[in-house]
């Protein structure tokens, strides 16, 4: 029962992960700062999923990355590209629509 609920919850959240990450990359972030930002908003993300996800987003040209070597530790910063910003806004609208639809649907159930 619990295992099933867990897997269903993970599945439900998986799709929203990309949107959550894109939303936080409007300003440049490196891996761990992104984790902290997301956790502050209550979104816990499996780190073994997050780092590969960043690479994939870069390959899809939604984000660009650069190494910052000015500090003691070199860090790789990610930020939305122009194309990424466009996609992010469309995806956001899509999410708002979906969550509203679902909200109405679930309200009707009560």
């Amino acid at each position: 029962m619990d295992a099933l609920l867990n897997s269903l919850t993970t599945e439900l959240r998986r799709g929203t992960l990309t949107l959550a990450v894109l939303s936080q990359l409007q300003t440049p972030q490196y891996g761990y700062s992104l984790v902290q930002l997301l956790e502050k908003s209550g979104i816990s993300i499996d780190q073994s999923t997050l780092y590969p996800l960043l690479r994939r987003l870069e390959k899809q040209e939604l984000v660009t990355s650069s190494w910052d070597t000015s500090e003691s530790r070199p860090r790789r910063y990610y930020v939305l590209s122009e194309y990424g910003i466009k996609i992010f806004h469309q995806l956001k609208k899509e999410w708002e629509k979906t969550s509203e639809e679902l909200y109405n649907l679930l309200k009707g159930e009560e």
């Binding site: 761990y32 780092y51 530790r73 860090r75 790789r76």
Partner: peptide, 13 residues
């Protein structure tokens, strides 16, 4: 590249 990023991430944590 990934090794470098992983090392920096782990040290951040």
């Amino acid at each position: 590249d990934i090794a470098l990023e992983l090392r920096s991430t782990i040290e951040d944590m």
